[in-house]
């Protein structure tokens, strides 16, 4: 077990454990935010695991998760729009904290990889992760409601 796998273990236990608590209890607005953050926390853990196992092919899992996680959240934002409109979720602190965690992870992995095609792929995954996370949070908070109705 090396430092990368240890970091992934701590991230999984702390991050996904908290997200599970959030998705299991509380009002609907807290649950959708926790679902969004669960995907955004699992993606850096996947990247750390790929580095820890020394298998660059595992990075594809992080790429697919960074693409599909926000899509899943957008599904909930669209189909729960009526219920969320009464009580919109506001979780910008948590969103940006998780985005910063993802950015720190991607930068650390880039430093470990060195300049190459793998580093470009990691940067693309990081951009997708943070961009998708912020867009999904904005959709949950009702930022695109006029677009959806118009």
């Amino acid at each position: 077990m090396n430092g990368w796998t240890l970091a992934a273990t701590v991230g999984l236990a702390g991050g996904l454990g908290t997200a599970l608590w959030g998705v299991a209890t509380g009002p609907l607005r807290r649950r959708v935010v926790a679902q969004n953050l669960a995907t955004a926390l699992a993606c850096p853990a996947m990247l750390l695991l790929a580095q820890g196992y020394g298998r660059p092919a595992y990075v594809d899992l992080g790429l697919v998760l960074a693409l599909l996680g926000p899509v899943g959240t957008l599904v909930f934002a669209r189909l729960l729009a009526d219920e969320l409109a009464e009580d919109p979720p506001r979780a910008w602190v948590a969103t940006w904290a998780v985005a910063a965690l993802g950015a720190v992870t991607v930068i650390a992995l880039c430093v470990a990889t060195g300049p190459s095609r793998a580093m470009a792929k990691l940067l693309v995954i990081g951009a997708l992760l943070i961009g998708g996370n912020v867009i999904a949070s904005r959709a949950l908070a009702g930022g695109f409601r006029r677009v959806g109705r118009g």
Partner: peptide, 27 residues
């Protein structure tokens, strides 16, 4: 919502068991 989180957690489990192909389809 919980099932969506379960899908992600299962994908992590498959990755940890060195089965990334199964993890990809699970995701």
């Amino acid at each position: 919502l919980v099932l969506s989180v379960l899908g992600v957690v299962l994908a992590v489990l498959f990755t940890v068991f060195q089965a990334p192909d199964v993890g990809l389809s699970q995701l």
